[in-house]
């Protein structure tokens, strides 16, 4: 056989392996994005579970603040029913704002602030909010990585019809540093 022939065969095989590994890399990074989203989803769900307890506890001390309770439970319901990453995160940010109002009320009730149950709920809620922020950060990193993988040459040759994914917006208030305040 001609040596040229064998060199060509070898070249084709090498190219094939290269293409496969590039393609696998893209698929892996796409899975990574899906996984990162499910991490956020878990935290949002946990957050939704904590809120009724918190509202009940605050009600025990400040029953007449009905407007805030209604706003919180509306925002919570909106978050639970929201579909898709962008919409869900938007609802979650709205919920954060109303929760801020609930905690502001708590400031006016020293007995409530001394309630251990309330304190624990407050700790856990701010912990869950931190986790949402960090999970969003991980999600955005995964999205950036995926977008790079499918747009930068030569990976872009193997994208197979995948399109760029959207980053999750960071709410203005928490843009600087994921806040870690345990009042």
């Amino acid at each position: 056989m001609e040596p040229v022939f064998w060199i060509l065969i070898a070249l084709v095989v090498i190219l094939l392996f290269y293409a496969i590994s590039k393609r696998n890399g893209i698929v892996r990074s796409e899975n990574q994005v899906a996984n990162a989203w499910s991490q956020i989803d878990v935290q949002l769900q946990r957050r939704g579970e904590l809120i009724p307890n918190l509202v009940e506890t605050v009600k025990g001390y400040a029953a007449h603040e009905k407007g805030v309770f209604a706003a919180v439970s509306d925002a919570r319901a909106a978050m639970v029913s929201a579909k898709g990453p962008a919409e869900k995160m938007k609802a979650s940010n709205a919920l954060t704002a109303t929760l801020g109002r609930l905690f502001a009320i708590a400031e006016a009730y020293p007995e409530l602030k001394a309630n251990t149950n309330f304190l624990q709920l407050q700790d856990e809620l701010s912990h869950t909010e931190n986790k949402v922020a960090f999970a969003r950060q991980a999600y955005n990193d995964a999205v950036t990585y995926f977008n790079n993988a499918i747009t930068v040459f030569p990976g872009s040759l193997f994208r197979g019809g995948r399109s760029k994914k959207e980053q999750l917006a960071v709410p203005e208030a928490s843009k600087a540093v994921p806040k870690v305040s345990f009042a």
Binding site: N35, A36, Q39, Q43, D123, E124, H127, N130, K131, F134, A135, Q137, A138, P178, V180
Partner: peptide
């Protein structure tokens, strides 16, 4: 424990 959990989430 919360801080560790948060960083675990951040690091996946």
């Amino acid at each position: 424990m919360y801080a560790v959990e948060e960083m675990a989430v951040a690091g996946g």
